[in-house]
Nucleic acid binder design. Structure first.
Length: 470
RNA sequence: GCGCCGAUAGCUCAAUUGGCAGAGCAUUUGACUCUUAAUCAACCGGUUCCGGGUUCGAGUCCCGGUCGGCGCACCA
């Protein structure tokens, strides 16, 4: 009979560490009980050796017919079975730290095997659809996921330490706003209303600042109805954080400190490698304006004040289709993406985004066509986005109206006008800076993974035919 | 959404030009008192992803579909 609980005293790694100096062939009187899965089994007549793995690591179990209860059953365990075993710590003649099993009990049966004991499970479909088996069969899978969870913990610790309150905001929204993306649609039966799954918590969080929460963060799932790729999962985790009285420069300081602290927490260093290329999270990160970087890449000076038609021509030269609704700002941003983005390896802040592509960011005092906004890039991709928040309700209305014009012109990712949010700004939002970090992207960098699915416990997969019907 | 590639035993993988579908591991059985992916022996194990087609004959060639990987597009 399978017991309802098990008295577990010691982890595998503790045994390896605490008895590290034990001599080969030596036997202690120290009794421990361990629990985990049987990963390997080597039966040799009246002796049997099992490799037990728990969350901390592995330890060998040493069973003898003369010592171990139910020895015959022990030697017939299946790979993958959970067992608990009690006995004294010994080191075998061949030098392996072991628990000499006096008594043991099966805690769960593994009816399916965990793949080839050397090669594990490599089929992506099996690995992602049965991640629980993948995590046991492939230690690398568990390591990467552990790093992802450690990233979450490190982010929370850092935010708490800086006086931010962790909050929650609605996932079901009457309008999907706060970012440029296509939403998922769902339906509430009793209210007989359409809802959109949030694409960003941004506007709710700023409403909390209006309400008096001066420093808030939310570490939450957002949903975007877009293509799936090695860098995109339909639901992903975003850190959003708002600090009253800060501006964009304060937020850049915070961002580089946060990310390098997370790397230090999880990896023990800020200098690592990503995809076999050296990579450093170390602060400070360079700060360069979008116009500067783009001009440098192009070999000619461009800015948001360059005639729109010239920027459009430069885009056309590079094979980028220019939409007629794009102004100079959008064209500059597109040029930046086409010429610079991929080459930004170590973290860098790109600053001074055009107002045209930044509908929620505050204008620069010295140039109303630019905003106090940055994006952090790393390993050729966007890692974070932040800005001084637009807190002028009249300007916000103007920006939303511009978005509405884009929507009318066929841009299905333009933001909707959010009257409730404008009204919130009319109650008064103090000077505030905000930050958004793609946590999955950060986890990929820290876990050195190129596929986002590796750092998501259960990535979104297409349902198999016949599955999911209600 | 488009393109390229892949799917063979529970797992990892073979299979020549279109010619009897195999191995290792796992499972089962046997031997073995210090193994380390233990070893040795024996047995078992198949809708070759699904559906059509060509052919005397298809894992292999053709068409359609499913799921996945990568790239592009979209995007974070």
């Amino acid at each position: 009979m399978i017991p309802y609980r098990y008295e577990h005293t010691t982890f595998a790694r503790q045994i390896q560490e605490n008895w590290a100096t034990l001599d080969a062939g030596a036997e202690t009187a120290d009794e421990v009980s361990v629990a985990g899965r049987v990963m390997l089994l080597r039966v040799q007549g009246k002796l049997a050796f099992a490799t037990l793995r728990d969350s901390s690591g592995e330890v060998q179990l040493f069973a003898l017919s003369a010592v171990t209860g139910e020895f015959d059953e022990f030697s017939h365990l299946h790979l993958g079975d959970w067992i608990g075993a009690r006995g004294v710590v010994v080191r075998t003649k061949r030098g392996e730290i072991s628990v000499k099993v006096a008594s043991w009990v099966r805690l769960a049966e593994a009816r399916h095997n965990f793949g080839d004991k050397w090669a594990g499970i490599s089929d992506f479909d099996v690995r992602y659809r049965h991640r629980e088996a993948d995590l046991w069969a492939n230690p690398d899978s568990r390591d990467s996921l552990q790093r992802r969870f450690a990233v979450l913990q490190a982010i929370r610790r850092r935010c708490w330490d800086q006086g931010f309150v962790e909050v929650e905001t609605p996932i079901l929204n009457a309008i999907a706003t706060g970012a440029a993306a296509r939403p998922f649609v769902t339906h509430h039966n009793a209210l007989d209303s359409e809802f959109f799954l949030r694409i960003a918590p941004e506007l709710w969080l700023k409403r909390l600042v209006v309400g008096g929460f001066e420093r808030v963060f939310e570490l939450g799932r957002v949903f975007r109805n877009e293509g799936v790729s090695p860098r995109h999962n339909p639901e992903f985790t975003m850190l959003e954080l708002y600090a009253a009285y800060w501006n964009v420069a304060d937020m850049m300081d915070f961002t580089e400190a946060l990310v390098s602290a997370v790397a230090l927490d999880v990896l023990g260093t800020t200098d690592t490698t990503y995809q076999e290329r050296s990579f450093s999270f170390a602060a400070p990160w360079p700060r360069r304006s979008m116009a500067d970087l783009t001009s440098h890449a192009l070999g000619e000076d461009v800015s948001v004040h360059t005639p729109r038609e010239h920027l459009a021509q430069l885009l056309d030269d590079r094979g980028v289709a220019v939409h007629e609704s794009w102004g100079a700002g959008r064209c500059l941003a597109e040029l930046f993406e086409a010429t610079c983005e991929q080459d930004l390896w170590d973290p860098i802040f790109v600053t001074d985004f055009p107002v045209e592509v930044s509908p929620l960011a505050r204008r620069r005092a010295d140039d109303p066509e630019l905003t106090e906004r940055f994006e952090a890039y790393a390993a050729g991709r966007e890692l974070a986005n932040g800005f001084s928040e637009l807190n002028d309700p009249d300007d916000q209305r103007t920006r939303f109206e511009e978005q509405a014009r884009l929507a009318a012109a066929g841009d299905d990712e333009a933001m909707a006008i959010d009257e409730d949010y404008i009204r919130a700004l009319e109650w008064g939002l103090p000077p505030t800076a905000g930050l958004g970090v793609g946590v999955d992207r950060l986890a990929m960098l820290i876990a050195d993974e190129s596929n986002i699915r590796e750092i998501i416990a259960f990535p979104t997969l297409k349902p198999l035919p016949g599955a999911g019907a209600v």
